Amino acid sequence: MKAPMTVLIAGRNAREVEELEQMLIGQSGLRLSKRLITNGHSDPLHNLTELPEALVFCTTDAWDLELKSLDERPVSGRVPTVVTGPEDTVAMRTAMRVGARDYFVFPVQKQELLDALWRIARELKPASEKAGGLFAVVNAKGGSGASTIASALAHSLAERIEDRVALVDMDLQFGHLASAFDLQEKGGLVDAIARSDSMDLMALEGHMLKHKSGLHLLGNGSEQLVVSGDIDEGQLQKLLALLRSGYDHTVVDLPRHIDGITGILLESADRVLLVVQQTISHIQDARRLLHYLTRYMGVPADRICLVVNRWDKRLELTTADIEKALGIAEMICIPNDYAKVAESSNLGVPLLEAAPSSPVSRSMVRMAEALSGKKVVPQTGLGRVWRKLAGN
Rank of each mutant, 00 (worst) to 15 (best):
K2T: 15
K2R: 10
A3I: 08
A3L: 09
V7C: 11
I9Q: 13
N13G: 03
A14P: 00
E16F: 02
E16K: 14
V17C: 13
E21F: 06
E21M: 13
Q27L: 09
Q27R: 15
S28F: 06
L32F: 01
L32C: 04
S33T: 13
K34Q: 15
R35Q: 02
L36V: 01
P44K: 06
H46E: 13
H46Y: 10
P52V: 02
P52E: 03
E53C: 07
T60W: 04
D61P: 03
W63E: 07
W63M: 08
W63T: 08
D64Y: 02
D64F: 02
R73F: 01
P74E: 08
P74F: 02
G77V: 01
R78A: 06
V79T: 09
P80C: 01
T81I: 12
V82K: 06
E87C: 04
T89I: 14
V90F: 11
A91C: 15
A91E: 04
A95Q: 07
A95T: 04
V98T: 14
A100P: 04
A100F: 00
Y103K: 13
V105T: 11
F106K: 15
Q109G: 14
K110M: 03
Q111C: 06
L113F: 04
L113T: 11
L113W: 04
W118E: 15
W118Y: 13
I120H: 05
I120L: 05
I120F: 02
R122S: 14
E123M: 14
L124Y: 00
K125D: 12
P126F: 07
E129K: 06
E129R: 08
E129S: 11
E129G: 07
G133E: 09
G133K: 11
L134E: 06
V137K: 00
K141I: 02
G142A: 11
G142N: 06
G142E: 09
G142D: 05
G142T: 06
G143Q: 02
S144F: 03
